[in-house]
Design a protein around this nucleic acid. Structure first.
Lengths: 106, 106
DNA sequence: GTGTGATACATCGTAACACGAAGTACTTCG
DNA sequence: CGAAGTACTTCGTGTTACGATGTATCACAC
């Protein structure tokens, strides 16, 4: 999938992936794989960013001797998803513009 | 509208805006304004990029003593719109993922 | 017991990109 | 004359996705 097209979706996808249940990096990647793929470096960058923006909080926990960082969504994070849903109307209208211009001439 | 969300849409919008009829910078901005807004510096950067990618060709013409550059879409440009339409399925599936995770818990 | 692959997180450098700011230059209209 | 509209250009900056690379543990096969 086109990198540019992904840019506006990744943040919200990560938030959606942890909304119902706290999760950790590796799991998030697996959960999102059927829908959107991202490298580990991308995900951890995003998680760091969302943390700095107070859209999620982190808690470390030990699991089988390995460290795991569990991410928990905040009210701001939930609001971010809400804003995205509202912006989607605009996205659809843009899509329709592209389609309209395209269909006039095929 | 969120900058990141626009990134994947701008190129295709510009191509759609010139698909049926050759157009020039200022006009393109006006045509797209109801759907998506972009600054002049952004548009001219995009037009330059699309030209380098052979998605459009340029022809200069004089209009009322002023220079105008008319942009004409190429087969590659048309193909780019087609690819976008095909990728849209994926975008919708991602949107549904976000919505689904969101609706489980409100 | 040694390799191999999965799990799990981190850092660095890079290239793409949107955008604001500022500039040039011509036309129209009050 | 001055302001606003038309039309294109250049520069610098901040954001961002990603590949490459590294560290470390665990499970399982051979």
């Amino acid at each position: 999938m086109d990198v540019q097209l992904k840019r506006g979706l990744l943040d919200v996808c990560v938030l959606a992936a942890i909304k119902n249940e706290d999760s950790y990096g590796y799991q998030i990647i697996k959960d999102m794989k059927p829908y959107i793929e991202m490298s580990e470096s991308t995900l951890y960058t995003i998680l760091k960013r969302l943390e700095n923006m107070n859209m999620l909080t982190v808690r470390s926990a030990e699991h089988n001797g390995r460290l795991r960082k569990y991410y928990h969504i905040t009210p701001q994070g939930i609001q971010r998803i809400q804003d995205f849903k509202e912006e989607w109307e605009e996205v659809i209208s843009i899509y329709r513009f592209v389609i309209k211009e395209d269909e006039n001439h095929e």
